[in-house]
Simulated scan of single mutants.
Amino acid sequence: MKRKLLTFLLALSMTAGCSAQAAKPVEINENVDSCDTCHMGIRDASLAAEVLIDGKPMKFDDIGCMVTYLQQHKNIDAAFVHAHDSKEWIDFQKSYFVHDSSIESPMGYGIAAFLTKQAAEKFANEHGGQVFSKDELLKQNMMEFKMHSH
């Protein structure tokens, strides 16, 4: 009996631990939600990004706006971007990025996200641009990205 109870409690704690770690982005409501950096309305959810802090979503209309926020705020639960090719949410921490002035983005940062480095490199080879890891992107001056995108 004790063994069954112990097994049940162990399984329960493992399940609780997994669900607590599986942070997911919340839905973006186009033309209702606004960017937490620039305060512009989010018009295209497929270009939006999101950060979760203590379970509360911070929404951004452009990846560049989110990067600007993350450069100043380090304690986050999770961050998400939309993949340029699939338009699906992907984990910012595991993503790769291409910056190029030809990439259209709401605030003109010219950043596109990709699930894999290979996908980012393929896009950059076909369309131009420079590939960045998440860590490399966080070290960039976002104002320079914005200035070179117009």
Rank of each mutant, 00 (worst) to 15 (best):
Lys4Glu: 12
Ile53Gln: 05
Leu138Val: 08
Ala124Thr: 01
Ser46Tyr: 08
Met58Gln: 14
Phe114Thr: 04
Met143Asp: 13
Met142Asp: 07
Ile53Gly: 00
Gly128Arg: 02
Asp77Trp: 03
Glu144Thr: 14
Phe123Ser: 01
Phe97Glu: 06
Met1Asp: 15
Leu70Glu: 04
Ala23Cys: 10
Gln140Asn: 04
Phe97Ser: 03
Asn141Thr: 12
Glu144Gln: 15
Met143Asn: 15
Met107Lys: 04
Leu12Ile: 01
Ile53Met: 03
Asp91His: 07
Asp61Arg: 07
Phe123Asn: 08
Gln71Ala: 12
Ala48Thr: 05
Ala83Cys: 10
Lys117Leu: 03
Ala20Ile: 10
Met143Gln: 15
Asp91Arg: 03
Lys139Glu: 13
His127Gly: 01
Leu5His: 13
Ser133His: 13
Pro57Glu: 11
Leu138His: 11
Ala119Val: 06
Lys134Val: 03
Ala83Pro: 01
Ala124Arg: 01
Phe80His: 11
Ile28Leu: 10
Gly41Asp: 06
His99Gly: 04
Val26Tyr: 07
Leu47Trp: 02
Val131Asp: 05
Phe60His: 08
Lys146Leu: 11
Ala124Lys: 04
Lys139Asp: 05
Lys74Ile: 06
Lys139Trp: 02
Gln118Ile: 11
Leu9Thr: 05
Leu52Trp: 01
Gly55Asn: 04
Val131Gly: 00
Ile53Asp: 00
Thr116Ala: 08
Met66Asp: 07
Ile103Val: 12
Lys4Leu: 15
Asp62Cys: 06
Ala78Gly: 13
Asn29His: 12
Glu136Leu: 15
Leu12Asn: 04
Phe60Met: 09
Thr68Asn: 14
Arg3Gly: 10
Gln21Ala: 13
Trp89Arg: 00
His127Gln: 10
Tyr96Glu: 01
Gly41Leu: 14
Lys59His: 10
His73Ile: 09
Phe8Cys: 10
Ala22Glu: 15
Ala45Cys: 08
Leu10Val: 13
Gly108Tyr: 07
Ala11Glu: 00
Pro57Gln: 07
Gly108Val: 06
Glu121Leu: 02
Phe92Asp: 09
Asp135Phe: 08
His127Glu: 12
Gln71Leu: 06
Ala16Trp: 04
Ser105Arg: 03
Met143Ala: 14
Thr7Gln: 12
Asn29Asp: 07
Ala83Gly: 10
Asp54Gln: 13
Tyr96Val: 02
Leu47Asn: 05
Gln93Ser: 15
Ser34Cys: 08
Ala112Asp: 13
Ala20Asn: 01
Ala22Leu: 15
Met1Gln: 13
Met142Thr: 15
Tyr109Lys: 06
Lys146Asp: 02
Leu70Arg: 11
Glu136Val: 05
Ala124Val: 00
Pro57Val: 02
Asp100Ala: 15
Asp36Thr: 09
His73Ser: 10
His99Ser: 05
Phe145Val: 03
Thr7Cys: 04
Gly108His: 04
Tyr69Pro: 09
Phe97Leu: 01
Glu30Ile: 10
Lys2Arg: 14
Gln140Met: 12
Gly129Phe: 08
His73Lys: 13
Asp62Gln: 01
His73Trp: 03
Met1Trp: 14
His73Leu: 08
His39Tyr: 15
Ser46Ala: 09
Phe132Asp: 01
Glu121Ser: 05
Ser13Ala: 09
Ser46Pro: 03
Ser102Met: 07
Val51Pro: 06
Glu126Arg: 06
Tyr109Ser: 12
Gly110Ser: 08
Asp135Ala: 15
Tyr69Asp: 07
Thr116Tyr: 02
Ser46Asn: 12
Ala16Pro: 06
Ala119Glu: 02
Cys35Lys: 04
Gly108Thr: 03
